[in-house]
Amino acid sequence: MTAAEVNVAGGSSSRVPGRPHQEVAFVARDVYVGAVEAYRGAGFEMCADLCAVDYLLLGDRHVAEGVVPERFEVVVNLLSLSQRRRVRVRVQVPESDPSIPTLFDVYPGVEAMEREAFDLFGIVFDGHPDLTRILMPEDWEGHPLRKDYGVGRVPVQFKEAPGPR
């Protein structure tokens, strides 16, 4: 698959008046790695950033035509140094199966970023060489950046009260 085909197939780039132009491509999960490989072949030498978003509270959000919005979204920022161009690949990840293939074999630099997304959102990156928590302690329960993660659930510790754990 070439990058041009990706753009035709699942990609779309929308322009909002008054805002700087940003290239966005929606890619389905099952063709995700192939699509990113195609971008790499098309001159995107670097994966600048990878992060996830939990859209739990935004049910009817706007995505491109033909794309079914899911709870999670993995956002990959690719950077082409030669063309001075960025493209943002957005992949929908369903809540029932929060997993996505790893990009490690395409861009080894996503190693820490995927670990961060796993740690904070609980999205499993299949094939990642060392998918462990990176920011939170190893025995932490839950994934803090999820929208349904209970913030402030740990009670204030007064002197006599038992500890949270």
């Binding site: 909002v16 700087p20 940003q22 950033d49 992060c51 978003v53 920022n77």
Partner: peptide, 30 residues
């Protein structure tokens, strides 16, 4: 909307990915 902006910090590319849901707080700030 959502936007990614990057600048050159003394250490390299410093990027900010903002997702807004139309309210006065960012829905997601990375």
């Amino acid at each position: 909307g959502e936007v990614y902006v990057a600048i050159e910090s003394p250490r390299g590319e410093l990027g900010c990915y903002l997702v807004s849901d139309g309210s006065s707080k960012p829905y997601r700030m990375h």
